[in-house]
Design a protein around this nucleic acid. Structure first.
Lengths: 114, 114
DNA sequence: CCGCATCCGAGTGGATACTG
DNA sequence: CAGTATCCACTCGGATGCGG
């Protein structure tokens, strides 16, 4: 990527902020990966992520549904079961996550590995 | 990026988290861009970013210096002046930011633009 | 099983004033 | 100018209990 020009900066900020809001929290990527791994139910997801409380999971799942990263389906019956699935759209985040991952790997080497 | 395998997931999480810790806050990218734009001094940077308080700026700059994204140079004299500059290393973040930006742009279109 | 409501403590961040 | 100190409002998130 070449040097950013000043007039480009402002227009870049909002979309960057949007993306960070959507995946930038402490849990969202973990939850997404948990679902990618095959976990479908609330308790399953909760148990797969240490230290994640029901309150936070609940609100994160809502955000993610609003952003179309997952779908939520209630299966009638008793007890009620709910199924969370990742959308095809969520797959488009993989290149973003890959970029974050690569930079983070490299950074570890730079900061720690001497 | 192809589908992630399960055993890859865990190894991906830490570096992703590292990167988000470094650029994921509310201000770090704004500050970096402000410095890229040419702002060098504490007050200059502060004034260029609405709503940013001195306390937060101060602590963000320290983090960023620790992560080698910027350098801090005190220029003797009175009053004291300090010069912040972005490092060559910080430029490596541009591809990450570009990826965040592209995804965010696309997402806006998907969510809002119908 | 799903997941919201409530209570509550700790940490964050803003405003302001002050030192070097 | 650079940055710290202090005070304080507010949010976040953990624990727990309950209703559907």
């Amino acid at each position: 990527m070449k040097k950013m020009e000043h007039h480009e900066c402002i227009s870049k900020l909002l979309p960057v902020r949007d993306t960070l809001d959507i995946i930038g929290g402490k849990w969202k990527i973990l939850i997404l990966i948990s679902i990618w791994e095959g976990n479908k139910h609330f308790r399953e997801i909760e148990r797969s992520i240490p230290k994640l409380s029901t309150k936070v999971l609940s609100s994160e799942l809502k955000d993610m549904e609003a952003n179309q990263l997952i779908t939520r389906t209630v299966i009638n019956g008793f007890p009620v079961r709910t199924e969370y699935k990742s959308t095809a759209y969520s797959e488009t985040l993989k290149s973003v996550i890959a970029e974050l991952h690569d930079w983070g790997m490299n950074h570890r080497k730079k900061i720690l590995g001497k």
